[in-house]
């Protein structure tokens, strides 16, 4: 598979906004995938953006008072409500603009949260905001556990991962279930633009953010964000782990426009062995070959479901009569 990342150095200076909207000096761990992804997101969005942030690593590391890493207007209220706060900001900007109380130009509201703040406790608020059709983007930065509070499992934790609330032990494989399929759930909400992404594919991610920004309505991006601290891998493995997640088929990168699925990073016929992804991560260290097979089965089910949808899904606009 030919990856665009190899050419990043060549093209980056031309293609990427030089302006930093999420700046250095924040307190995220070394090699934090979430921080990198947010920096890329901010560049893709540009200045006319308001960000609402759920409680979590990205909130506590970016804004210990009186400092802030944000050069975009940014607000944090609580853990479960980033999408609801975003819905309120969106409604306010719409109302104030219509009444001539603020400048007459598009400002996009982008709500962000971790997997805990999105798959679990913030799920209802996201469902409500997306279903009501607010003109906003929701981006979940999924590091597959509650990292801010110390690596507890969430609805996004994959099978076999050892977390502090589903630890591996003599009688336990760690987490026993597969990740909730948020992209599919959002498609079921009739969200016109849904995508999966990863910071290890920066152009793909930024393109998706830009596409989401263009939608006049709700858009949702599920961004896998490697957490070296919680995944128990070296901090310089962040980019590599993201790429392995994709190349092994564990986290395929695709988008769904008006119900039509499309792979955005081409996948090889023969996927890379799943062990390449699992072995470098301490959270999977305990898995037996049998358990690795179970992991593989769960991952492949999701992967094949995506392939099926790519083959058979149609754009909603072709389905109304």
């Amino acid at each position: 598979m030919k990856s665009i990342v190899e050419n990043f150095d060549l093209f980056a200076p031309k293609l990427v906004d030089k302006e930093e909207y999420y700046c250095s000096g924040h307190r995220a761990c070394q090699g934090c995938g979430e921080a990198l992804a947010i920096r890329l997101m901010a560049k893709a969005l540009g200045k006319d953006t308001v960000v609402t942030n759920a409680t979590g690593c990205m909130e506590v590391t970016a804004t210990p008072y009186p400092t802030t890493a944000w050069k975009l207007p940014w607000v944090h209220v609580a853990f479960p409500n980033s999408a609801a706060v975003g819905a309120g900001v969106e409604a306010a900007l719409k109302s104030l603009r219509r009444k001539g109380k603020i400048a007459d130009r598009d400002v996009k509201v982008v709500s962000i949260g971790g997997d805990g703040g999105s798959f679990d406790i913030g799920f209802q608020a996201i469902s409500g905001a997306m279903e009501r059709g607010h003109n906003m983007i929701y981006i979940v930065y999924d590091n597959e556990a509650y990292m801010n509070t110390g690596i507890q499992r969430s609805g996004a934790t994959p099978y076999g991962a050892s977390t502090t609330t589903r630890p591996a032990g003599k009688q336990s494989v760690g987490n026993t279930t597969w990740k909730k399929n948020m992209a599919e759930i959002m498609v079921a909400h009739k969200v016109p633009y849904v995508a999966t992404a990863c910071h290890s594919y920066p152009f793909d991610f930024m393109d998706k953010v830009k596409k989401a920004k263009k939608v006049n309505g709700p858009a949702f991006i599920h961004c896998l964000a490697v957490c070296p601290t919680g995944w128990r891998c070296p901090s310089d493995a962040c980019i590599k782990m993201g790429r392995l997640a994709v190349e092994t088929g564990v986290f395929p990168l695709y988008e769904v426009e008006n119900g039509k699925y499309k792979m955005t990073i081409e996948m090889p016929k023969k996927l890379r062995p799943i062990e390449d992804y699992l072995k470098p991560q301490g959270r999977f260290r305990h898995l037996t070959p049998d358990q690795i097979q179970i992991f593989k089965g769960m991952a492949m089910l999701e992967y094949n479901k995506v392939l099926e949808r790519i083959k058979h899904s149609k754009s909603w606009s072709d389905m109304t009569s």
């Binding site: 209220v77 609801a84 706060v85 309120g88 900001v89 104030l96 209802q124 608020a125 409500g128 905001a129």
Partner: peptide, 19 residues
Amino acid sequence: VESEHSALSACTGASAAGA
């Protein structure tokens, strides 16, 4: 909204935006 939690959250966001 879909809940009171979101009602007050949305009001907070809207008030923060100057409404």
